[in-house]
Each structure stands twice: as C-alpha cells, then as structure tokens.
Amino acid sequence: MEQLFLNGILVGLLISLISLSVYPVICLVRFFHFAHAVVIAAGAYFSFLLSRCFGWPMGIAIPLAILLSAGLGCLMEVAVYKPLRKREAKPIVFILASLGLYTVLQNVISLVFGDDTKSIRTGPVREGLNFLGARITPIQIITIVTAIVVVVGLLLFMKYTRLGKAMRTVANDANLARVVGIDSDRVIMWAFAIGSGLAGLAGILMALDTDMTPTMGMRPFMMGIVAMIIGGKDSIIGIVLGALLLAFAQQYGAYYLGSEWQDAIAFAILLIFLLFRPQGFLGKKV
C-alpha cells in the first residue's frame, strides 16, 4: 500500500508537470495545442542525440535538450500559429494545423531514430532505495523534486514577474493587454518557450525512468489535459490537485480492478467532471 501511495505521488507530479507545461500555452492561445505531445518526445530524443550520439555528459546534454525543445515550440509558433493568428483563422484551423504538426514531427523522429525503444540511462537499472516501506529509484526522487520546484517556480513566476503578469493580462483580455501596451506576440512566444521547455524536461524525466519511443508523449499529454480540465483551467494549484486526484484514482483503480482499466478510470473521471462540475473543482463558476 505504501508503494501505491508513492506511485500516486510520483505519477501525479509527473502529470502536473506536463499539465503545467501546456498551461501557459493554452491559456494564451486558447486552442488545443496538440503538437505539444510531440515536444515531450522531442525533449527525450534531443537528450538521446546529445548524450548518446555526440557522447556529451548529461550535465550539458540535458539543459541543451530543454533549450532545443523550447526552440521547437517557438518554431511552431513563428512558422504556423502566428501567421494563422494574423489571418484571424477559426479555432478549428489552429487545431488542424496542430494535428498536422504533430504528425510530421512524430514521423520525423521515427524516421531519424527508428520506432524501437531507446534509452539514455547509463549502467544497469539500480535497485530502488527503501523509503517508508516503498521502493523508490534515484530518478524518481529527482522527478519528484523537479516537479515540486517547477510548480512553486511557476506559481511565483506568474504572480511576481513582469512577464508572468503580462501573460495573465493577455490570457484574460487580449484587447486590454494591447491598450496597456503589452506586445502579445512576444508574450505568446515566451509562453511557447517556457511551456515547450518544461515539456522537454518532462520527456527527459520520463525517458530516464522508463526509456523512450516516438509516441511516448501522447498518453501523458492526454492525462495532463484531463488534469487541467478537472483542476479548473485557471489555477495552478487546481491543476496540481487535479493531477494528483487522477493519478491516485488510476493507481488504486488499477490495483483493485486490474491495470487494463486505469486509463478508462481517467476517462470516467473526466466525464463525471464534465457532467457535474465543468469548471473544475477550483475553477470559478461562469
């Protein structure tokens, strides 16, 4: 049971990390940025490329891979989304473009690296440490710590920095933002950079724990989106609580009902929230 609890925390924080990586983007651009799923995988593959193919130490490879992921996000914004925004395209056009981007990038990864599982772990899988009756690997400890740092960091960032405040203004009212002289294009670019960087980081953490495949980003991305809905779209704390709720329901559900149902449980939770509390449990009623 301790193991179940620990797994719940671990998975919940990982989902939070992914949810928070897409949060700045979705808040600002207001469409379903589907290609975000591939940025998660891209982060892992960048780190694979740098550490395995180039043989650079992890200390250099990982930060660089995060930067490259951020760059990938910005590239999508500049090359596709920004021109569409200038044309005032319908939301459905953004989503379609995003689906196209996802397909192209995912297949580029497949083409370059192959569809088989790749690993960036060095040495054999280490025996987990014993922690209050549960087993935990060093990587999992790092994941937990990183996720907590990101949550706190993002909270402070949105609250106290000028850029964070500008993001909130643009998210609330783009016209007001223009009136007070905020360059919304620049703010959106930053949101893509930060969000994609965090997605890359999440991808690297996942790869360190369980290796990588080109489609690794899709399922966690979906979980992140569901966490965002059940947490309420405009609150970081809500998102983290949503992610934890989702993770615990999945862990315990898998334990009692069988692991084939753990994703179906996530779907059931989403439907329950859509039916009874569409604004999420911390969201404001509209």
Binding site: V80, L84, L96, G100, V104, Q106, N107, L111
Partner: peptide, 20 residues
C-alpha cells in the same frame, strides 16, 4: 510508412496556411 505520414501531416499544415 513514415514518409506517407509526413506527407499528409505536412499537407494538413500547408492546407491550413494557404488553402483551407
């Protein structure tokens, strides 16, 4: 198989940008 998907994914993006 990959090229096919890259083609139609790319076509989707191109369509959205220039020929919706």
């Amino acid at each position: 198989a990959n090229m096919r998907q890259i083609f139609y994914g790319g076509a989707l993006v191109v369509c959205m940008l220039w020929r919706p």
